[in-house]
Amino acid sequence: KLCLVCSDEASGCHYGVLTCGSCKVFFKRAVEGQHNYLCAGRNDCIIDKIRRKNCPACRYRKCLQAGMNLEARKTK
């Protein structure tokens, strides 16, 4: 099974979405830290295992598009 954000090996369902541990922690920190990420490109950066750290804005956008939600952990 692959992470729906970066296509690395998924470690489980986190915040409602099948993700790897790295994307799970990234999403939690992004939401709780209330980061205002900005993409230096055109908001279409490739997010994969190798390049997932290059653009936090696009990675966060991809987390949201996949359906990640901090509240999902509280309902399970």
Rank of each mutant, 00 (worst) to 15 (best):
C6I: 01
K62S: 05
G12E: 08
H14P: 04
K24N: 10
E32T: 12
A10T: 05
R42L: 13
A66G: 06
L70Q: 11
C45R: 01
G41N: 14
D48P: 02
N36P: 09
P56A: 12
K74T: 10
K74N: 12
M68G: 02
A10N: 04
G12R: 07
L64W: 10
N43G: 10
K24V: 13
D48T: 09
V5R: 02
L2K: 15
K49C: 14
R59C: 03
G21D: 12
R61N: 13
N43Q: 14
A40R: 09
R51Y: 05
T75V: 08
G67W: 02
L70F: 07
I46H: 09
R51F: 15
K28C: 06
C58N: 02
C20S: 00
G41W: 11
K49I: 06
C55L: 00
V5H: 01
K74R: 15
C55P: 01
T19Q: 02
K28R: 10
K1E: 09
G16A: 04
I46T: 14
R29V: 14
V25P: 02
S11D: 14
T19Y: 02
C3K: 01
H14N: 07
M68S: 01
L18E: 09
A72T: 11
T19H: 03
A30Q: 04
M68Q: 00
H14I: 05
K1C: 05
Y60Q: 08
E32N: 08
R73N: 05
L38C: 10
A40W: 07
K76L: 12
V25M: 07
A66M: 10
E71S: 11
I46F: 15
D44Q: 10
F27N: 01
I46V: 10
H14W: 09
K74S: 09
C3L: 00
K49N: 08
N69C: 15
N43I: 04
C20P: 02
T19M: 05
R42C: 08
V17H: 03
K62P: 01
R52P: 04
N36Y: 04
A30G: 04
L64A: 05
E32C: 10
K62I: 07
C63M: 07
E9S: 14
V5Y: 02
K74Y: 14
K28Q: 13
L18G: 04
L64E: 13
G12Q: 10
A66V: 14
L2Q: 14
K76M: 11
I47S: 04
Y60F: 12
L18Y: 15
D44K: 08
Y60S: 03
L18S: 14
L64F: 06
H14A: 07
S11A: 09
H14D: 11
G16R: 03
K76Y: 04
Y15N: 13
A40C: 05
C39S: 00
K62T: 09
A40S: 07
L4Y: 10
N69G: 09
I46K: 15
Y60P: 01
T75F: 15
C39D: 01
E32Y: 06
G12K: 07
V25L: 14
K28G: 09
G67Y: 04
C20E: 02
K1Y: 06
K76E: 15
Q34I: 05
V25T: 11
L38I: 09
D8A: 14
A57Q: 04
T19I: 08
C58K: 00
A40L: 08
S11G: 07
Q65I: 08
Q34S: 10
L70R: 14
D8Q: 10
C39K: 01
C20A: 01
A10M: 04
M68C: 06
P56Y: 09
E32Q: 07
R73K: 13
P56F: 12
R29D: 13
Y60C: 02
C23S: 03
E71Y: 06
K74G: 12
R61T: 12
F26P: 00
R42W: 07
K1I: 05
S7D: 12
Y60H: 05
Q65W: 08
L38S: 10
R59E: 02
L4Q: 14
S11V: 12
G16Y: 02
A30T: 08
H14G: 05
K53P: 10
G41M: 12
N69H: 14
A30D: 02
H14Q: 07
G21A: 12
F26E: 00
Y15F: 08
V25K: 15
C23Y: 02
A40Y: 10
M68L: 05
R29C: 07
N36T: 12
T19E: 00
E71W: 06
C6K: 00
I50N: 11
R61S: 12
G67E: 04
N69S: 14
Y37M: 13
C20M: 02
A40D: 05
C58P: 01
C3G: 00
G12W: 05
I46P: 09
Y60V: 04
K53D: 15
R51P: 05
T75A: 14
I50V: 13
S11K: 12
S11I: 13
E71K: 07
G16N: 12
R42K: 15
K24Q: 14
C55W: 02
C39W: 00
R61P: 01
C13Q: 12
F27Y: 12
K1L: 04
A72H: 09
C63D: 00
G41T: 09
A40N: 10
N54C: 05
R42Y: 08
H14E: 06
R29I: 13
R51L: 10
C39L: 00
N36E: 12
Q34R: 12
